[in-house]
Structures are given as structure tokens and as C-alpha cells.
């Protein structure tokens, strides 16, 4: 198995007496090249799960294995596109993308070429000399996507990347993410609370329960892409997902 989350529990201790169980005995598997969406209510612990896969946090118990090796900390084989914007504001867009490439040991010349290539991949080749604050929210997301892809990670982690984007840009960005995934063949784990995003993107959707997060159910989406969310098949899937999500709330209460 490519990525394996084995019986992971995460407990946050907020004080001497109080502790919060964010994730409880959660297991899941991801195969190479898969586009997996993790769907769950806000605050259910899905970001925590992603943070542990990225290596920013350690499971309280259980293990996470990437190609059989346990994850020790953050590293360039697993790149995250955060919910909040993390482009370095003091660098140009090009320098932002070159940052990770240089760290990989590429020469300036090579990093520049690779960065330019990935900027054109997301349609930002004209904006390489701009600073992040000069770009729109959607363009910044694209730049972050390019920055993540440029260093050629094994797995791309996306933590509700479109939650702060308006509906019109969102549709375009969803198409962009899909296009990038189809071209690069990367494994993507995409966390969201938005059913439509999950239905539009995913090979497979995992529904989590409200806190503590456990796997509530798993839904395979076999519809061909690009998907029409208003087709009968998709509407049936959506109805099913809505039911699952409603139940996952009830379970928690």
C-alpha cells in the first residue's frame, strides 16, 4: 500500500485535566495516483489528520506509513497546500517557487526553468515577477499549487484550499486541480467540508464522523470526468453523502 494510516488516535491536552480526542482509532489506505477526498464537518479533526500525514504533528497512538516507512516529520515528499495562504510575501512568485527547488539542490538556472514551467502549468507565467499581495486570491492558490508541484512530491495534501475563494473562481480552480492531477499522476489527499468539491474531484470519498473523527463510510465515485454535478447519478451520490454526513453528526451527539 502507498500510504497507510493505521489505528491512529490523536489526543490534544489542553490543560492538566482536560484533553480533547480529535481522532479515534482511524485507519485508511491510499493507493498511488489516487485522488482521495476526505469529507467531514468543520472541526471534526480532518485537518489534524492531514497535519499528521504532513508530519507537523505526531499521532498519540497508531502509525502512518508512506511506502512502508513511518512518517517522522515534515519533508518534501509530502507537500501541503494549506488552508491559509503561505506564499512568502517578501519574495516574488518566481522566487517562492524556486525556494523549494533550490533546497532540492537544483542550480539557480535549473530551478528557474522548473519554476517557470510550473507557473505556465497553472497559467501564471506572466506573473512571475509579481509579489503575492499583488495577486488575487485564486491566483495565489494557483501559485501555491505550482510551488507544491514543482518539487515533485510523492503526495500532495490539500487542506480545504478553496474555502476562502469565491464561488466563481472556485469552479475554475477545481478544474485546474483536476487537470494538474490528470497530467502529473500525483497522489492527492484533498480535505474538505464541501460535498460538491468532493464529488467533482474524487476517485473515492471518505466520510468522517464529527469529533472524535473516525471513518464513517467510504464511497467510490466511478463517474467519468469532467463530471456534471447535476446528472442523475451525481445527484444520487450527493443524496447519499448528505445522509451519511447527517448521520455522522447524530453519532457524535
Amino acid at each position: 500500500m502507498f500510504l497507510e494510516v493505521q489505528n491512529v488516535t490523536k489526543i490534544f491536552r489542553s490543560s492538566e485535566k482536560k484533553s480533547i480526542v480529535a481522532i479515534k482509532d482511524l485507519s485508511l489506505q491510499v493507493s498511488k495516483g489516487e485522488l482521495l477526498c476526505i469529507l467531514g464537518p468543520i472541526g471534526c479533526g480532518k485537518s489534524t489528520l492531514l497535519n499528521m500525514i504532513a508530519g507537523f504533528e505526531k499521532p498519540t497512538s497508531g502509525r502512518i506509513l508512506l511506502e512502508g516507512r513511518e512518517i517522522e516529520g515534515p519533508g518534501p515528499d509530502r507537500v501541503m497546500v494549506f488552508q491559509e495562504e503561505t506564499l512568502f510575501p517578501w519574495m516574488t512568485i518566481l522566487d517562492n517557487i524556486m525556494f523549494g527547488l533550490r533546497l532540492k539542490g537544483l542550480s539557480d538556472e535549473e530551478s528557474r526553468r522548473e519554476a517557470q514551467r510550473h507557473l505556465s502549468l497553472v497559467g501564471l507565467e506572466k506573473f512571475s515577477a509579481f509579489r503575492p499581495h499583488e495577486l488575487s486570491g485564486g491566483m495565489k492558490r494557483k501559485a501555491e499549487l505550482a510551488r507544491a508541484l514543482a518539487i515533485d512530491p510523492k503526495i500532495l495534501l490539500m487542506d480545504e484550499p478553496l474555502s476562502s475563494i469565491d464561488a466563481i473562481s472556485r469552479a475554475g480552480l477545481l478544474r485546474e486541480i483536476l487537470r494538474v492531477w490528470e497530467r502529473s499522476g500525483k497522489t492527492i489527499i484533498y480535505v474538505t467540508h464541501n460535498i460538491d468539491e468532493a464529488l467533482y474531484l474524487a476517485d473515492r470519498i471518505i466520510v468522517l464522523t464529527a469529533r472524535p473523527a473516525r471513518v464513517k463510510s467510504e464511497i467510490q465515485v466511478d463517474e467519468p470526468r469532467p463530471r456534471d454535478l447535476l446528472s442523475n447519478a451525481m445527484i444520487a451520490l450527493k443524496r447519499n453523502l448528505l445522509k451519511e454526513l447527517a448521520q455522522s453528526h447524530v453519532l457524535a451527539e
Binding site: 504532513a54 515534515p74 491559509e84 503561505t86 512568502f88 523549494g100 533546497l103
Partner: peptide, 27 residues
């Protein structure tokens, strides 16, 4: 924090994180 996390993800060493990321972010 968020910029340092991003830098760690790209495999930055402590020196790069402090001087190239943390310091400018502290401006």
C-alpha cells in the same frame, strides 16, 4: 509559524528557516 511550517515542508534546514523565512516574516 505558518511560514516556518511551509519552509520545513520544502526541506529547509535550520539556518535557511531562521534567516530566509523567520526573520523576514518578523518584520
Amino acid at each position: 509559524r505558518k511560514y516556518v511550517n511551509a519552509a520545513k515542508m520544502f526541506g529547509a534546514d535550520k539556518f535557511t528557516i531562521f534567516f530566509k523565512v523567520f526573520l523576514p516574516a518578523a518584520t
